[in-house]
């Protein structure tokens, strides 16, 4: 689904990514590990152009999104992202956080369709035989709102936080925030979710609940790219583990092979330090 070809990224003179090639297929769960400063977070942030790549291409569903001329917002709708520090919208309630993007974007699409239709109607007055079809408009804004709300509530029920729908994020624990951040990205019905160290800012006792939700998603066949320090998660859930160092992918493979029989000396050293 995502083909990364020779991805490069510089910050001024600092070369962070030095040519990354990787293919992520549908249903893949890729765990990216590596020492700090190895560029793994930058790599993840380049995947949805949060950082603009300096070179190379990222082909997502047949479109090169590293090309600056594409409308990145359209493609980001299909790529969820979960951050280390949750980044829930502080000025919105939990429910509004989840509804915000789907509601706004669907209403925007509706307005766009209405605008186009009025243009087409105007043109059809002069067109004679070559009349053009109107865009179908099946829903009103109110229907969209109800539908999005229903979906948001069912997502909240799924993580058992439906009673928190109307509170502000500042009242929640880290684990709750991160689980809400995950279902916020799910609300857009994405094809892939990018996780940027989702458990690193959590208290140890909260890590479990977040990993549990991620495991559920994995079991449902969601495509995931996870930058993580949770070796247990990488070993259990991922079907591919990628080791990055100095801006390059040094080794990748299935978890059994990766942890059981590491080849790269740098990876051996890294694993010996953390396991």
């Amino acid at each position: 689904m995502i083909d990364v070809i020779n991805l490069r990224k510089n910050f001024e003179d600092l070369e962070v990514l030095k040519g990354i090639d990787i293919t992520i297929n549908k249903g893949d769960i890729v765990a990216v590990i590596g020492p700090s400063g190895s560029g793994k977070s930058t790599f993840l942030r380049c995947l949805n152009c949060m950082e603009d790549p300096s070179g190379g291409s990222i082909v997502f569903k047949g479109v090169d999104i590293a090309d600056m001329s594409v409308d990145i917002n359209v493609h980001r709708r299909h790529m969820g992202m979960v951050f280390q520090h949750f980044n829930l919208f502080n000025n919105k309630t939990v429910l509004q956080n989840i509804m915000m993007a789907p509601l706004y974007l669907r209403c925007q699409d509706l307005n766009k369709a209405k605008r186009r239709n009025s243009m087409i109607k105007f043109r059809n007055m002069f067109a004679g035989s070559s009349k053009r079809e109107l865009n179908p408009i099946t829903q009103t804004k109110e229907q969209i709102r109800n539908e999005v709300k229903e979906q948001a509530m069912s997502l909240l029920q799924r993580i058992g936080l439906e009673d928190k729908a109307d509170v502000y994020p500042s009242t929640l624990s880290g684990g709750q925030k991160q689980r809400i951040a995950i279902i916020r990205s799910l609300a857009m019905d994405p094809d892939v979710i990018l996780f940027d160290e989702p458990t690193s800012a959590l208290d140890p006792e909260m890590v479990g609940e977040v990993l549990e939700l991620m495991k559920q998603l994995a079991a449902e066949g969601m495509t995931m790219v996870v930058v993580t320090h949770e070796m247990g998660f990488a070993r259990e859930v991922a079907n591919r583990v990628v080791f990055m160092d100095e801006g390059l992918i040094k080794e990748q493979g299935s978890p059994e092979e990766f942890f059981g029989n590491p080849k790269e000396p740098r990876l051996k050293e890294f694993l010996s330090k953390i396991l």
Partner: peptide
């Protein structure tokens, strides 16, 4: 927090919308 803008952009909202609905109110 710049993360607020990033989160807005990450769910597919444009710079203008993220600014108006999320950053400027805060």
């Amino acid at each position: 927090d710049p993360g607020q803008m990033e989160a807005g952009r990450a769910v597919g909202l444009s710079f203008r919308v993220s600014m108006m609905k999320i950053v400027i109110p805060q």
